[in-house]
Amino acid sequence: MITIQLKFFASLREALGAEQALSLPAGSSISAARAALVARGEPFAGKLAQGRAVRAALNQQLAEESALLSDGDELAFFPPVTGG
């Protein structure tokens, strides 16, 4: 098992909280982490369901959902960005 630190921002932070730890089988991808959260039910299911516009950053870099996670990683989920 690995444990990663989750962070949420903007509308996802309001619904899901700012951060929490998540344990997953070794070799899990970002999409597996997202699926594990969706499997918890609401409010995660609605906010992170496939098809929702959710972006991910792994260790503070934008990442594709196929990226693999390692113990101690920081994984953030957030809506499309709107700065500037």
């Binding site: 921002f9 516009a53 934008l62 953030a76 499309p80 960005v81 709107t82 700065g83 500037g84």
Partner: peptide, 26 residues
């Protein structure tokens, strides 16, 4: 730089309007 920042930097705007507050859509 500005085009890059608009779509790749992690900022989010929330607006207060007469209908309440709302997150701005990308």
């Amino acid at each position: 730089l500005m085009d890059y920042l608009k779509t790749q930097a992690p900022f989010w705007k929330k607006e207060d309007t007469p209908q309440g507050s709302r997150w701005v859509d990308a």
